[in-house]
């Protein structure tokens, strides 16, 4: 995808000032994804193949306001990582409010495409947190 680099830089600056974790620009020949990780905004060209997967991906959004944790406080490893498989209801991350944790749960059996929010980031209701691809259970739509 060909996008004016100055425009990408301008978007990145704007994105860095928000709590929006990911922004996707779709064009006829591909997609550009801007991902905010901490204070850094990184741009990724999404290949047409990956873009097809992305088209089928769903985003798990924050169920409330809080601090996003990519792992349970007791765990050393993130709950979800690109490629990890989860049963419906299993935690993909957590939202912390004071001492209280809320689970960010897999809405269905799925494979994680990417974790969109940074560990420790404050997120609002509806902030995209985890991109997933539902696992085809063999049922025809």
């Amino acid at each position: 995808m060909s996008v004016d680099p100055a425009f990408v830089a301008q978007l990145s600056t704007w994105l860095a000032a928000t709590d929006i974790a990911v922004l996707e620009l779709r064009g006829p020949d591909g997609t550009l994804r801007l991902v905010q990780a901490g204070s850094v905004v990184r741009s990724e060209a999404v290949s047409p193949v990956e873009d097809i997967a992305a088209a089928e991906a769903e985003v798990v959004a924050a169920p409330g306001v809080g601090v996003f944790l990519d792992r349970h406080p007791l765990r050393l490893e993130p709950a979800a990582a690109p490629g990890s498989q989860h049963a419906a209801g299993e935690p993909l991350g957590f939202l912390r409010t004071g001492p209280i944790l809320q689970a960010v749960s897999a809405p269905c059996d799925c494979i994680v495409e990417g974790v969109l929010a940074a560990h420790g980031a404050t997120v609002g209701f509806g902030t995209p947190l985890v991109a997933i691809v539902p696992i085809d259970t063999g049922e025809t739509p």
Partner: peptide, 8 residues
Amino acid sequence: GKAVPPWF
């Protein structure tokens, strides 16, 4: 067999 979080 399905993981549930501790302290939940």
